[in-house]
Design a protein around this nucleic acid. Structure first.
Length: 596
RNA sequence: GGUCCGGUAGCUCAGUUGGAUAGAGCAUCAGCCUUCUAAGCUGAGGGUCAUUGGUUCGAAUCCAAUCCGGAUCACCA
């Protein structure tokens, strides 16, 4: 149990004993004591004043007295300032925590709770390479999955690949028209980038045709409809749906190029999936659902044959679920897939990592699933994240300001190489070790940069800040880890590494205490991050821990501690800190190096 | 126009189940490497928490209104 929970429990018991009436944790508040006051945790009692008809100081005195008398192994001292009861937690409590956990790699993680959750993330289009926005999605999804695992859930990571539709046909048409049989191999281009180029070529050609038609006296609408390249694309979509062999073959070929490219990127950034869905397999799934919805009278048919759901009572609009020609729309596919996920995996919760521009869509999806009476429809959770903008504004493909994922990774890794070489601390590393280190640092910097911000907020990507390796960054935390490991290695080598004797020294110094108090909060950080589906909680926590360690490190020597007892205590502190950094960074998908 | 989200230091962000003098990082300035890795540490300056009103012992946090920015409201996906 955390010290905050213990304090809560003790306070309730003390209050009940003192005032002979029941209390709950809502009757008072517990905060960490501000550094300018003496004490570790503070009970705020203003809310008790009214019901007890006593001054805050009077309550505080009685409570403080009772707590320190009744629980002397937990609370040793108290003081009251302006109605705040500041309690000092016994050194014995902190030492006990340290003795128990300093070698525990699983510290902070919860037991399995038997619940199953699916996290769907990444979900790319097969007509363009990944960009900065996708990176935020990928890092978030992976991290949230890890955080949920740490909270005791069984997690299935899934991905739905958007591999069909008019937009895919566009790059296919362009390839037919302009490629002269070129392939990624003949042009030595990464497959996803190669196909992406033809998508761009399509748009250029289309725009040119539209302009020409407008020049010939057509209206914009007419021109857009009549442009030959668009007509060819629409025909191709029909051919695809009818399974025309040459179209299918081209589709498969181009998709295989894209997948080969994606694989490289996914492997590099560490994204992986337990289950991949393809929209070409799932786009017809919703058909049965429509009939069921009709039977249940959730859906209604209009005169023209199209089928709708009326959500106006829920503050939304009417939404179409099937076109008059019987073809299904986007939302219908999603309903079908949602049902399939439940049926295949019996999941308790389904999380969708999707940008906030789809908030409305996801709200509709959730509502329809509920109205259809789907199992666990209430446990659909849209992890909605904000767009990544540039300092100059939004990324726009038309203006060529889209930051490509592969380019960005390359740049970060190159920067980490440059920094590492300048510092010259790992000159004895082999080529392979160096390459691994540059990747670890470069990717660590990038992931930390994108994950340290609350997911739901729009964030600004500043290229200069992102390659800064000082301060609130991944490399800062990695560096702290490498430093600790360096000490542990040295002491290991000269035989004075941590023994397993219990540390009992009283009189924890200020910075020692600060570090252990922070370490004690790690389980709470994991819990909060899980509850909020928010990796930034972990990023902020781990940074705070590293910073606290660095202050401690500069002030107090571990190897040359005043006494052997102090040395052992500090070794345990260092080891616990290292374990938490390793574990916390893992929750963010970030590796930590033994040396850097 | 309806709905939703956001506005905190020059910049990027924490802090919002109401609590003490609103915190970090970057940038600026001043210090600290003969001692465990200076990708570090210490200190200084920098704030009308968008605005106005309300609720109360107490508001960045809750409520209302206003201003500004963004998203969305397709028989696109």
């Amino acid at each position: 149990m955390s010290i905050v929970s213990s304090l809560q429990k003790c306070t309730i018991e003390s209050l009940s004993a003192l005032f002979n009436q029941p209390f709950t944790e809502k009757d008072f508040q517990i905060n960490q004591t501000k550094p300018e006051f003496e004490g570790d945790y503070t009970v705020v009692m203003f809310s008790l004043v009214k019901s007890l008809k006593l001054s805050p100081d009077a309550i505080g005195n009685q409570l403080g007295e009772h707590l320190t008398k009744k629980y002397p192994r937990l609370f040793t001292k108290y003081n009251i300032i302006k109605g705040f009861l500041n309690l000092t937690v016994a050194d014995a409590y902190w030492l006990d925590l340290l003795n128990k956990n300093h070698n525990d790699i699983c510290y902070g993680k919860k037991e399995m709770n038997g619940k199953k959750v699916m996290v769907e993330y990444s979900s790319p289009n097969t007509n363009k390479p990944l960009h900065l926005g996708h990176l935020r999605n990928n890092f978030l999804g992976w991290s949230v999955a890890e955080i949920l695992k740490a909270n005791g859930y069984e997690v299935i990571k899934s991905c739905i690949v958007n591999d069909r539709g008019i937009h895919i046909c566009k790059s296919m048409i362009a390839w037919q028209l302009f490629a002269n049989g070129a392939t990624p191999e003949t042009t030595k281009t990464k497959g996803d980038h190669f196909v992406g180029e033809y998508y761009v070529k399509f748009n250029d050609a289309y725009k040119k045709e539209v302009d020409e038609l407008i020049g010939a006296g057509k209206t914009k609408d007419e021109a857009e409809k009549e442009a030959p390249i668009m007509k060819a694309t629409q025909q191709m979509l029909l051919d695809w749906e009818n399974g025309k062999p040459d179209v299918m073959e081209l589709w498969k070929k181009m998709n295989s190029w894209v997948y080969a490219g994606f694989d490289v990127t996914y492997k590099r950034i560490g994204s992986d999936f337990d289950k991949t869905y393809y929209e070409s397999d799932t786009y017809l799934l919703g058909k049965d659902i429509v009939q069921q919805g009709m039977d249940k009278k959730v859906f209604t048919k209009k005169d023209d044959g199209s089928i709708w759901i009326d959500l106006t009572a829920d503050g939304l609009d009417e939404k179409i679920v099937q076109r008059k020609d019987g073809t299904s729309v986007y939302i219908t596919q999603d309903i079908g897939l949602a049902l399939q996920k439940y049926e295949q995996y019996k999941i308790d919760q389904s999380i969708y990592v999707i940008g906030n521009e789809q908030n409305y869509h996801m709200k509709v999806l959730q509502l329809i699933c509920q109205k259809l009476g789907m199992p666990n429809a209430g446990n659909i959770f849209h992890l909605s994240y904000g767009m990544v903008e540039l300092t100059t504004g939004k990324m726009k493909s038309r203006e060529g300001t889209v930051v490509d994922a592969d380019d960005l990774v390359d740049e970060m890794v190159a920067t980490s190489k440059q920094h590492t070489e300048e510092l010259g601390k790992v000159k004895d590393f082999t080529e392979a070790e160096l390459k691994g280190l540059y990747d670890t640092i470069g990717l660590g910097a990038m992931k930390f940069y994108l994950l340290r911000v609350d997911p739901k907020k729009t964030m600004v990507f500043n290229p200069e800040d992102s390659i800064d390796f000082h301060g609130f960054t991944g490399p800062f935390v990695q560096y702290t880890y490498a430093r600790i490991k360096s000490i542990l290695r040295k002491l290991e080598a000269d035989g004075s590494a941590a023994n397993n004797q219990r540390s009992t020294a009283n009189g924890l110094l200020k910075l020692e205490k600060e570090l252990i108090v922070t370490a004690e909060q790690y389980p709470a950080a994991i819990e909060q991050a899980g509850y909020e589906h928010n990796p930034s909680v972990i990023a902020n926590y781990v940074f705070h821990l590293a910073k606290t360690f660095n202050s401690f490190y500069t002030e107090h020597s571990i190897a040359n501690a005043e006494t052997e007892e102090k040395k052992q205590l500090r070794l345990k502190l260092a080891s616990l800190t290292a374990n938490i950094i390793l574990s916390g960074m893992k929750l963010l998908g970030i590796a930590v190096p033994e040396r850097m």
